[in-house]
Simulated assay, not measured.
Amino acid sequence: MTQEVELVDLADAFPQLEIDLKYASPDNITGYVIYQQARCLLHPDAAKALARSVEVARLAGLTLVVYDAWRPQLAQQHLWLACPDPQYVMAVSLGSHHSRGTAIDVTLRDEAGALLDMGTDFDEMNARSHLWSPDISAAAHRNRLILNAIMQAGGFVGISSEWWHFELPDSVRYPLLSDRFSCPALPSITTTRSL
C-alpha cells in the first residue's frame, strides 16, 4: 500500500549537508544511473531526527555526507537485481525502509575536508561492511562508532550489515510511499525472473 506524504527536500532544509546521491550516478553497485532526478528526500519524522544528527556532527567538527535517502520502489528492484541478498538489500516484496522515507545512508567528512575512513566504500556488500567486522582497522572502527553515536543522537538506529545505513526505529509502521521521480525500466531479462 502506498500513501502520499509531503517529503522534505534535504538540499533545501539542510544546506550545510553534503549530498552525494550515489544512485543518481553510475557510482553504485549496479554500475548505472538509477535515479533520473538527483532529489534527496526524507519523511518529515526522519528529517526531524536528521536535524539533531546534523547539529551533533557540527559540534564534533564533522559534516554528514548523504549517499541515499528516500528511494523509489522501482529503484529497489534495480538494487535487488544487482545484489539479491536480503542481508544487504531488502527484498522487493517486503519494501525497503528507504521507500518509506525513514532510512538514510550517510558517512562523515572531517574539518579538513577528508572523508573519514570507514574501512570499506559505500555499497561494498560483503562482511567487511558489517558494523563489527574484525577485518578493518582500529581507526575505521572508531570512525564507525562516531558515526553511530551521531546518528543515534538524532534518534536513528543502525543495522549490523551496513555501517552507512540508519533508520527510524519504528520504520516498519510507516507505509511504502509512491514514487516521486522515475527510474529506468528494468533490464528485459527480468521479465522471466520472479521478484
Rank of each mutant, 00 (worst) to 15 (best):
P86T: 10
R39K: 12
C40H: 06
I29A: 13
I34N: 07
L116Q: 07
D68Y: 03
V54L: 05
A69Q: 00
R128M: 09
A47F: 05
D135M: 08
F122P: 01
A51M: 01
A47H: 08
T30K: 09
W80P: 05
S133V: 04
S129C: 13
A69H: 01
V106Y: 02
I104S: 11
Y23I: 10
M90I: 11
M90Q: 11
K22A: 14
V89N: 01
A103I: 03
S133Y: 07
V65L: 07
G61M: 00
L64Q: 00
A24L: 07
E55V: 00
I34D: 06
A46C: 10
R100Q: 12
P26D: 13
T102S: 14
E124P: 03
A49I: 00
Q77A: 15
I19Q: 02
Y35K: 02
P72S: 02
R52K: 15
L116E: 03
D85A: 08
K48A: 13
W132K: 11
P44I: 03
T107V: 07
Q76M: 08
Y35F: 15
L50K: 00
M125P: 05
R100G: 07
G119P: 06
A60E: 05
A138N: 09
S137V: 04
L21M: 13
V66Q: 02
Y35H: 15
I34A: 04
T63P: 02
F122M: 11
R39I: 06
Q87E: 14
T120H: 02
V92A: 13
L81W: 09
S137D: 09
S133M: 03
L41W: 11
I34F: 06
M125G: 04
A69N: 01
V89L: 05
G95S: 02
P134N: 08
R52Q: 12
A82K: 00
T120D: 11
D45S: 14
G31S: 08
